[in-house]
């Protein structure tokens, strides 16, 4: 069940558009922020709020990569491996994470703290290699910098 606050925020999003279902993307993001990932129950609840067929909302949730259809760790580490980052060693950065956390691409640590993903260009090519953890960007990555960052993630 979504909280009253989340429902309130979804109603605010609906007000931005002439059609209710235009708020589907905002609603999915609001729900994900609160619940971590999107379950069938949550999708049904949102579809009801937006007065749209659940199947249409499922299509939207399935299409966009940022909606988590499965549980992710408390910290979702997303390493960019597109060209600019790859030229400056993003594969090594990814392997380094993989070794440090003991997980492979797409996996979550057993304590549910970290999920490791490979992502496409995040628009930060001038400061490659880079990654995003949850909402925040981390740029000009080195092994030493990663060790420091991991220490701050409790």
């Amino acid at each position: 069940m979504l909280s009253t606050q989340a429902i309130e925020n979804i109603k605010k999003a609906i007000a931005k558009y002439p059609r209710k279902k235009s708020a589907s993307m905002d609603a999915l993001m609001i729900a994900q922020k609160e619940c971590g990932h999107l379950t069938e129950d949550i999708l049904l609840e949102i579809a009801h709020l937006l007065e749209m067929p659940p199947v249409q909302l499922n299509q939207v949730a399935a299409f966009y990569t940022m909606y988590n259809k499965r549980p992710v760790g408390k910290y979702h580490i997303q390493v960019c491996t597109n060209i600019s980052c790859s030229l400056l060693g993003s594969e090594h950065i990814f392997q380094f994470f993989s070794k440090m956390l003991g997980i492979k691409k797409g996996e979550t640590t057993s304590d549910k703290k970290f999920t490791l993903s490979e992502v496409e260009c995040l628009g930060s090519c001038g400061t490659a290699p880079m990654m995003q953890i949850n909402d925040d960007y981390y740029e000009n990555l080195t092994e030493a910098k990663i060790e420091e960052i991991l220490k701050t993630l409790k």
Binding site: N82, S84, E120, C121, C125
Partner: peptide, 11 residues
């Protein structure tokens, strides 16, 4: 929707 790899100007 700046997403073309190599592009980071609009940001």
């Amino acid at each position: 929707d700046e997403g073309e790899p190599g592009t980071f100007k609009d940001r």
